[in-house]
Simulated assay, not measured.
Amino acid sequence: MIPKISKIEAQKRKGRYNIYLDEKYEFPVSEDVLIKYQLFKGMEIDETLKTELINADTVSKLYARALNYLAHQLRTVAEVREKLSELTDDVNRIDEVVAKLGEQRLLNDQNYADSYVRTIVNEGQKGPGAIRRHLQTKKVANSMIEQAINQYFSTNDQVANGTKVAKQQLKRMKRESTRRSLDKTRQFLYQRGFDSEVIEIIMQAVAPVAIEKNDEAIIMPVAEKYWRKYRAQEPYQRRQKTKQALYRKGFQIDDIETALNQLAVES
């Protein structure tokens, strides 16, 4: 004999119901499933329908969790899958929810990539390399990443943003030599994800600004520090070690010689 629904009991959790078959509790369902399958007292539930109802309830719970997860910010398909895997290891049900969200345009990796690129462009602090690294960690397809970058992050935008970053970095290195500050700025741009071709364009734009710094004015305090450090050395060794230290700091030979000659006179 096919079991029949003997009771439909509301749970304390809103929108959730317990289903009893022949006076015995069998499984819970959501209100969505209750309505969709038009469940009622006395309705016959065979094993096939029972399995279908349980699967439908799993999908309903997963869908509700996904909606809540998506309510706070855009997510990628991989992120939603990972979140839903906390509730179930039923890949088929997860696939069903992901497909439903995609059909409703609530989940779309291309939209996520486009939105992220526009945000980075507006912030003006990172290059396309940083974008690629972030989106790849979110398991967005490379084709979608490149499409978003090509559409929303033109070379002109990259140069403009990179130039702003470079100028900010140069201001932080007022005590550095011209060569060293430019080298560090170039490396900083690379770390921020700007491509090598764009970096060279940026450096050509900011180098004249950096070169306006007077290395002659900033070299003496640095030279004096090393001159004192090597004071126990013989005069020739003292001069050579100080020269090498200043050269490693990025100062030009002419400026180094001028500073050393002045220190030798003052000694």
Results as ranks from 00 to 15, higher is better:
residue 2 I to E: 15
residue 5 I to E: 03
residue 6 S to F: 07
residue 8 I to S: 02
residue 9 E to M: 09
residue 10 A to R: 03
residue 14 K to D: 07
residue 14 K to W: 09
residue 17 Y to V: 01
residue 19 I to D: 07
residue 19 I to C: 12
residue 21 L to Q: 12
residue 24 K to G: 04
residue 29 V to M: 06
residue 32 D to V: 11
residue 36 K to A: 15
residue 40 F to G: 03
residue 41 K to F: 06
residue 45 I to N: 00
residue 46 D to K: 10
residue 57 D to V: 04
residue 58 T to I: 12
residue 59 V to G: 10
residue 64 A to H: 05
residue 72 H to Y: 14
residue 73 Q to K: 11
residue 83 K to P: 04
residue 84 L to I: 02
residue 92 N to C: 07
residue 92 N to M: 15
residue 98 V to H: 04
residue 101 L to E: 01
residue 102 G to P: 11
residue 106 L to I: 14
residue 111 N to D: 10
residue 115 S to A: 15
residue 125 Q to M: 13
residue 135 L to Y: 01
residue 139 K to M: 04
residue 140 V to M: 01
residue 145 I to Y: 07
residue 160 A to W: 13
residue 163 T to N: 04
residue 164 K to C: 10
residue 169 Q to P: 06
residue 173 M to R: 13
residue 174 K to I: 14
residue 176 E to W: 06
residue 177 S to V: 00
residue 186 R to N: 09
residue 188 F to P: 08
residue 190 Y to S: 04
residue 199 I to D: 05
residue 199 I to P: 07
residue 206 V to L: 01
residue 208 P to L: 02
residue 208 P to T: 05
residue 214 N to F: 05
residue 214 N to L: 01
residue 215 D to G: 04
residue 220 M to G: 00
residue 225 K to L: 03
residue 225 K to Y: 07
residue 227 W to A: 04
residue 228 R to H: 15
residue 235 P to Q: 00
residue 240 Q to Y: 12
residue 242 T to K: 08
residue 243 K to C: 10
residue 252 Q to F: 13
residue 255 D to L: 03
residue 255 D to A: 14
residue 262 Q to V: 06
